[in-house]
Simulated scan of single mutants.
Amino acid sequence: MMVAEKVDCCLPTCQPAHMQRFFSTKMPGVNFVMNVLVFSLIGLLPVLLVYVMRAPGFASALMDGGPALSRFLRQVLTNGLPVIFIVNYVGFFLFAMLKAKDTNSRDPAVFILFDVITRVALFLVLHAFNYVLSASWFGSFGGSRATALSVVAPTLARSALFENISGVYLYATLVSALPLYVTAAGKSAILRPIFDLFPKKMGAVSVALLAFLSAAVCLTATAAVILRLLS
């Protein structure tokens, strides 16, 4: 099944019933990887456009081409897209596992907890790894690996507030978080009290958004703690 043929049905809501067509433990691995890549781009491009348009003069600088555009594209393609892809791969794989019959004995809240922890850890580790590579390969951060590592925490501490491009990467992964969290919230007995606080049709989505917000808060708090320890 080619994702491009039916992706339009998933864009409005990312409903689990639709997303299961593209992410299953029974589908070929190549198809799974390609679908993750396509949905990663779908999640990235709108958020990236908002980021570019809200920064004064940024869009015009990119349209002029030259070094600004090349550095921007290099940053997105070598740092942003790999981070988004890996985080989304984990999220979609957990979603596929949750839909599998042999996981029904577990409370699905476990999947949300595992994803939140993994999401935060991956953002920290992958940013550090990519920044060090950028310093070594492209001479970023003055070519200093130490400097590259030192800016990871302050950068991620502000990402949830959309103050830098790492915020783009964070919110671009919402495309994989929502199907997993909505599915888990709708089936979880542990989360039922929270689920029932919201209107029935909005319960699962509301819990899912709260879970993603929790991940963003955890990322910010973890980065802030690291920054304080290093200062």
Rank of each mutant, 00 (worst) to 15 (best):
T13L: 15
K6W: 03
G80W: 01
G43D: 07
V3S: 11
M63C: 12
A100I: 03
L48R: 04
L133N: 07
A153Y: 10
F23T: 08
G139V: 06
F95N: 04
S60Q: 14
G65Q: 05
G203L: 08
I86D: 04
A153F: 13
L219H: 11
S140A: 15
D8R: 14
E5C: 06
N164Q: 04
A185H: 08
L48A: 13
Y131T: 05
S188I: 12
T183F: 05
A146C: 04
L210D: 06
L11Q: 08
H18L: 09
M97F: 14
L73Y: 13
K200A: 14
R21P: 06
L209M: 15
I86M: 14
S144I: 09
F138D: 12
V217L: 11
L149W: 10
D102H: 12
P28F: 07
P108V: 09
T13Q: 14
F58A: 09
A68C: 04
L219C: 02
R192P: 00
P46A: 06
C218D: 00
G142Y: 10
A177C: 09
L98A: 14
A223V: 10
L126D: 00
L126Q: 01
P56S: 09
V168C: 01
T25A: 12
H127S: 10
N164P: 03
F195R: 15
G91N: 11
S150V: 06
V50D: 05
Y171E: 11
S70N: 10
L81V: 12
P199Q: 10
V168L: 04
C14M: 14
L229R: 07
K99H: 10
L49D: 05
V83C: 10
S144T: 08
M53Q: 10
P16E: 07
L73K: 07
P193V: 05
P179I: 13
A216D: 09
V116G: 05
N31G: 11
L178I: 15
T103G: 01
V47S: 05
F198G: 09
A185K: 08
D107V: 03
F129A: 15
V217D: 01
V125C: 13
A189L: 11
A215N: 08
S134K: 10
V7L: 11
I112V: 13
F198M: 02
P179L: 13
A128C: 09
V132G: 03
F129W: 14
L126H: 00
V151H: 11
F92E: 11
S40F: 01
V175D: 03
T220I: 06
K201H: 01
Y169P: 00
F162S: 07
E5A: 14
M202W: 02
A4T: 13
V36A: 07
H18T: 10
A68W: 03
Y169S: 02
F58G: 04
T222I: 09
L126W: 00
M2A: 08
I42C: 07
V168H: 03
A221Y: 08
N104R: 13
R158G: 04
D64K: 11
R145W: 07
A221K: 11
L178K: 11
A189C: 01
G143T: 13
P193Q: 08
P193A: 07
I190G: 00
T155P: 00
I165R: 09
L126P: 00
R192A: 13
A216R: 01
Q15M: 05
F162R: 10
P56E: 07
